[in-house]
């Protein structure tokens, strides 16, 4: 297992290098540059700026310079926000997105697995039909539809919760729910399908025949074995949700990381584009590694050599 993790981490470096390279050249291929404005900046100033950020250098040299920075953990300065580095931006906004994401993932996992298990146990029953109807509904409804509806009902009409902005825990409820509903629905359906398959196994029947309690059969025999597909979905989801959602953070005016994925591109803010992309890629690769380790914990037949 130790050797497996080391090898995977080594592969991660290669994967990140590919991500950096592809993103670097793609970003620079977009027409325009970070200092192009509607009203053109005087040539001399623009030239000075480009010199400062090495944008006047040939592309390969810029690439080498960037690689050198990133190896030293420096994601470079932002072109759009001259007083902040990309490291600053991630340091400030990632905790906000991660906090929101944590609650969203917690809700999605807990509610999703519970609903899925209950539905599987009462297949075809009222709870099953009810929760699977809502699962389909929330899989189909994107967050930019759900979020404004929540704002309208719970914020504008009922005054229960703040409509937007960030600060107290009350501010977190609506965006966390908006983020969680889709994944909750997916996890519920995955859990249900997987549970139904496991419950039909002989070893569940045999466990019941040994007189084990219903709860024990459910958790130790059915749920544990049914979780592998859920884990496959859950860990990449953590990476996606923790690094922020453009839509939900925009709608609720939350100072998270999500908006930089979009704004950095139309600002041609090359270093921010690269910074958030590499950050997300690294996070995603780590989560996939965690997923693989979790498989081995759930099922002893899975071993990595």
């Amino acid at each position: 297992m130790g050797r497996f993790i080391v090898r995977r981490l080594a592969l991660m470096v290669i994967a990140l290098w590919v991500v950096v390279t592809v993103t670097f050249f793609l970003a620079h291929m977009i027409p325009g540059g970070p200092f192009d404005r509607e009203k053109p900046v005087p040539e001399a100033i623009k030239k000075n700026l480009e010199e400062k950020y090495h944008l006047n250098e040939p592309m390969w040299k810029q690439y080498i310079l960037y690689l050198n920075d990133i190896i030293h953990g420096d994601l470079g300065p932002s072109f759009k926000y001259p007083d902040r580095t990309v490291n600053d931006i991630i340091k400030e906004s990632f905790p906000v997105s991660a906090q929101l994401g944590f609650w969203a993932v917690l809700i999605a996992t807990f509610v999703g697995i519970s609903l899925g298990s209950i539905s599987a146990l009462h297949q075809g029953g009222l709870i099953d039909s009810f929760s699977m109807f809502f699962a389909i509904l929330f899989i189909s409804l994107p967050s930019f539809v759900i979020a404004p509806i929540f704002q309208y009902i719970f914020g504008v009409k009922l005054h229960w919760l703040p409509v937007a902005n960030w600060g107290s825990w009350e501010h977190m409820i609506l965006p966390a729910l908006s983020l969680a509903l889709g994944p909750t629905a997916v996890i519920a359906r995955l859990t249900r399908a997987s549970m139904l398959e496991v419950l039909s196994n002989d070893y569940v029947k045999a466990a019941k025949a040994r007189g084990l309690s219903g709860l024990r059969v459910l958790i130790v025999y059915a749920l544990k074995n049914a979780l592998i597909p859920v884990v496959t979905y859950l860990f990449p989801l953590i990476a996606a949700i923790f690094t922020g959602s453009f839509v939900v953070e925009k709608i609720f005016n939350i100072p998270g990381l999500g908006r930089y994925y979009v704004t950095s591109i139309y600002n041609r803010d090359y270093t921010v584009i690269l910074g958030v992309t590499v950050f997300y890629a690294a996070f995603l690769i780590l989560m996939n590694l965690l997923a693989d380790i979790t498989y081995a914990l759930l099922d002893p037949r899975i071993r990595y050599e």
Partner: peptide, 12 residues
Amino acid sequence: FQDPMTSLNPTL
């Protein structure tokens, strides 16, 4: 039961 290959929980 009939099939010993599937009568034990593979993860325990």
